[in-house]
Design a binder for these strands. Structure first.
Length: 605
RNA sequence: CGGGGCGUGGCUCAGUCCGGUAGAGCGCUGCGUUCGGGACGCAGAGGUCCCCGGUUCAAAUCCGGGCGCCCCGACCA
């Protein structure tokens, strides 16, 4: 709770309420945040936080600050504008395309807007950290990031400019890193509790961050853009990108008859799995489908792409020789998990192959088959479930023909066998075989064990007790502050507006002065002054000229945890009317007890 | 980056097909009435119809180009 006197008159509040939601608000919580006067959009994915939102964000930041300090963090602040050099040294200047906002300063020096701060932390660590005596260490900041998303959406959920709490652990070895990683895991769990937002930790892909382990902290909601696989029986949870499941052995017709050899069958016009299955009288799971991608290795020598400024140049610099065709074989009823294909095939980038690229490898789009892929023409990646299955229906690499009874390992040789099928609703859990459930979620926070990657490129080393130079081990941990607020708003609302929990609400009390009489008005003003004096954060609706209905509705919309009404009616009843925004009965409280009762009630909001 | 939609007062939108005086509701200002769940009357202010160019006697409206915003997909640390 703030130490300062905090009060605001609604008549002067910068940020009005809107009766109708602006046209371009897609999610319920975002419409409310706009209508209630919390946020305003300046450009696609770029928002201003008006005083109400800013007060909430500062409270959220304070919670984050306390939790970071609690695990030994030191707050600092690093620039939003970076020179290109550190990002060139780490390679990310070249690996990241349009998502990075680049520009040149007046001298023509390459600059960028920070997307995150690993490079700069590593750079500073190189100069500040020299001895094992200074480790472990942990620094963090609340800082603006800019990521030029191809498509911003969902209000504050997916924006281009955002404030992030980002912390960076610095350790002498893997054990130290794992310790700080776990400390963050626990801190994030506490943060979810304190902000009243249910968070689910899931295993996740390391993506462009690199490194070993990673978890995401997800708010499960239908408006989420990520898909999670959860096991209710053993608690396994993972992002769909990395979710593992037990390969199911096939049991369909043909699959039992392991002795049967491939048999060519005529399947005119049947270019989709559904067509083929129907024509041959089998189920989709008795078929195998082959999906083609073109993967590219990231340029080994960063210099080969130096100076890339425009997205259009990127494709020209990357030579065709770096690309390879990847043929992925999954069961007909399953989808391909592209992230896992990247790992299996060892490529950095993946895109669907064009028909002419498939033909160039001597294959027939629509009827392509893993049988007869010319050595070296394509990397054949076969899903584990396909290997575990018996004879499946597969393409014959000949227009209008398929094979029955095709078996991996007997009829064709895979280059890689891996789980490249995407997890599906009801898939058997890897650890307990229970059915996995797929839900949507918003990534509120993430934690990465980076290892020595960034510190090595910045030459951040320490000297150990034997006098030997060692690389520093880094972990990186983020929480989107605005995204957290957006998720809290999504979780805590009703038909009338926001219902914010006290720890993150911009004010504690919405005070309404009703009625025309001088006595009632004086009483309301007196309570306003008293609340301020007693450090109860109060938003005082002093707009007596408006009708009561308007003011009640505005109060509900803004969603402060408590509402106090003082008017002729309440005075006649014995004082002020006090009501929780979250529901329940209103109570009448004598004015001389009001502040105390309010303070007590706040403890449970 | 592919597909689609939209751009008119502060907000939500009509008007565009079929060219001819810029509109409604809400909000805002003033006066009066009302006064515990989005009140009422009267008076009023407020618009480069996204921008540039073209066609035309005449363009919010038709044509060309651009910009912005939104949705679906691709992508995403």
């Amino acid at each position: 709770m703030s130490r300062q006197r905090v009060g605001q008159r609604a008549s002067k509040l910068f940020g009005v309420t809107l009766r109708e939601p602006p046209a371009e608000t897609d999610t319920a919580s975002h419409a409310l945040l706009v209508r209630a006067g919390y946020v305003r959009q300046l450009a696609a994915g770029i928002f201003s936080y008006l005083p109400l939102a800013w007060r909430s964000l500062r409270k959220i930041e304070q919670i984050l600050r306390e939790e970071m300090d609690g695990i030994g963090g030191q707050e600092m602040s690093m620039p939003v504008v970076h020179p290109a050099e550190p990002w060139q040294a780490s390679g990310r200047w070249y690996e990241i395309d349009d998502a990075m906002a680049r520009f040149q300063d007046r001298r023509g020096r390459d600059m960028l807007l920070a997307m995150t701060h690993e490079e700069v932390v590593a750079l500073h660590s190189a100069s500040e950290l020299r001895s094992y005596r200074q480790l472990p260490n942990l620094v963090y900041q609340m800082q603006t990031k800019f990521r030029d998303e191809p498509r911003a959406r969902g209000g504050l959920i997916r924006v281009r400019e955002f404030i992030m709490k980002d912390s960076y652990s610095l350790d002498r070895d893997r054990e130290g890193l794992e310790k700080q990683y776990q400390a963050h895991y626990d801190a994030y769990t506490r943060i979810g509790r304190r902000t009243r937002l249910p968070l689910t930790a899931v295993r996740s892909d390391v993506g462009m961050m690199g490194g070993r382990a990673a978890h995401e902290f997800m708010y499960v909601t239908p408006i989420g853009e990520d898909t999670l696989a959860l096991c209710d029986e053993c608690g396994y949870s993972a992002n769909r990108d990395v979710a593992a499941f037990a390969p199911a052995a096939g049991s369909g017709p043909g699959q039992d008859n392991s002795g049967l050899l491939p048999e060519l069958v005529h399947t005119p016009q049947a270019a989709t799995i559904a067509d083929v299955a129907a024509m041959l009288g089998v189920e989709r799971k008795d078929t195998a489908k082959i999906v083609f991608f073109v993967g590219s290795k990231a340029a080994a020598d960063p210099g080969s792409r130096a100076g890339v400024q425009e997205s259009g140049e990127a494709g020209e610099v990357r030579s065709a020789a770096e690309e390879k065709l990847i043929a992925v074989v999954v069961r007909g009823d399953m989808e391909v998990n592209q992230v896992q294909v990247q790992y299996a095939a060892g490529t950095a980038d993946l895109r669907p192959a064009r028909d002419e690229e498939i033909r160039a490898a001597g294959l027939v789009p629509g009827f392509a088959s893993p049988i007869g892929v010319t050595e070296g023409a394509a990397t054949v990646v076969v899903d584990e479930t396909v290997v575990a299955s018996g004879g499946l229906v597969a393409g014959a690499n000949k227009v209008d023909y398929h094979f029955r009874h095709v078996r991996c390992g007997r009829d064709y040789e895979p280059d890689v066998v891996s789980q490249v099928a995407a997890v599906y609703e009801g898939a058997p859990c890897m650890t307990c075989a229970g059915p996995l459930r797929l839900v949507r979620g918003v990534e509120v926070g993430n934690i990465f064990q980076l290892g020595t990657k960034y510190c090595e490129s910045m030459e951040a080393r320490y000297t150990d007790e034997h006098g030997a130079e060692q690389p520093i081990w880094m972990g990186s941990y983020g929480i989107g502050v605005g995204r957290l607020l957006a998720c809290i708003a999504e979780e805590h609302r009703d038909d009338h507006g926001l219902v914010l929990p006290a720890p993150v609400a911009p004010f504690h009390v919405s005070l309404l002065g009703l009625g025309r009489g001088d006595e009632a008005r004086a009483a309301a003003v007196a309570v306003y002054e008293e609340f301020k004096e007693k450090r109860i954060e109060v938003l005082f609706d002093d707009r007596w000229e408006l009708s009561a209905g308007v003011r009640f509705n505005d109060s509900d919309l803004r969603g402060l945890p408590l509402r106090v009404v003082i008017g002729e009616r309440s005075l006649k009843a014995g004082g002020a009317e006090l009501k929780r925004r979250s529901g329940g009965e209103a109570q009448t409280v004598p004015l001389d007890e009001l502040a105390e009762v309010v303070r007590d009630l706040l403890e449970s909001c």
